[in-house]
């Protein structure tokens, strides 16, 4: 059935967990493109047939006219599905810039694996747009993601953090499993990258 591939592609996206990426389904994606191509060539041949019969394509309402219409509608439906698939993935990619960090290497490898090369490029371009906005506005928007209740929070180091990061005027030692009492703004980037967790209660 025409148009089913696109529908499956969108279903494939929708079946994933909200806000999380699945690997790009390039098999289904290419099949959908392939179907568009088929629709297009069938449409062309029907139009040529009508022209050969000396009929005006836009005014004649015969079987061939409705044939081309069906192909056209199937094609734009598939196009909408393809675009929706890419668009929704792009939305998640943009969210990554907000929630994880603006630099590609900051993204955890398991997320990077799921991005296509084009999506990685998009991430970089979009991050640079965000960065230039923040630079011009003179304000860093990637901290303070949750309303601050307390200027200091207790954190535990859960990932590997390189030695010798300066905070304020002091060198720090963030050994794994060590606990620290830090300024919220200092700790937030590490929490976002999963290298620290906040201890509550």
């Amino acid at each position: 059935m025409y148009g089913r591939k696109g529908y499956q592609l969108v279903k494939d996206f929708a079946s994933g967990e909200k806000g999380q990426l699945k690997p790009f389904n390039s098999k289904l994606f290419d099949e959908t493109i392939e179907e568009c191509e088929q629709n297009h060539s069938l449409m062309q041949s029907l139009m040529i047939k009508m022209q050969q019969e000396g009929l005006d394509v836009s005014n004649n309402r015969n079987a061939d006219y409705y044939g081309t219409l069906v192909h056209h509608l199937s094609l734009i439906r598939n196009k909408r599905c393809l675009m929706a698939y890419v668009h929704n993935r792009a939305e998640i990619v943009r969210d990554l810039a907000w929630t994880v960090g603006l630099l590609l290497p900051q993204l955890p490898p398991e997320i990077q694996e799921k991005l296509t090369t084009l999506e990685k490029d998009y991430f970089k371009n979009h991050s640079s747009a965000l960065k230039s906005y923040m630079g011009k506005a003179g304000i860093d928007l990637n901290v303070d993601m949750v309303p601050p209740k307390d200027p200091y929070i207790k954190v535990r180091v859960v990932g590997d953090i390189e030695q010798g990061i300066m905070m304020g005027d002091k060198a720090t030692n963030f050994a794994r499993h060590s606990m620290h009492f830090l300024k919220r703004t200092d700790a937030e980037p590490y929490i976002a990258r999963g290298q620290m967790e906040e201890l509550t209660g």
């Binding site: 297009h40 393809l82 296509t116 084009l118 979009h126 230039s132 906005y133």
Partner: peptide
């Protein structure tokens, strides 16, 4: 405005490279 313009350019480029280039001219 600058941000929005860049956003649109980036996403349009992304769409073109991943989907639209593979479709026929009129689509």
């Amino acid at each position: 405005k600058v941000f929005a313009t860049k956003c649109v350019a980036d996403l349009a480029k992304h769409f073109e490279e991943s989907v639209l280039i593979k479709l026929r001219e009129s689509y």
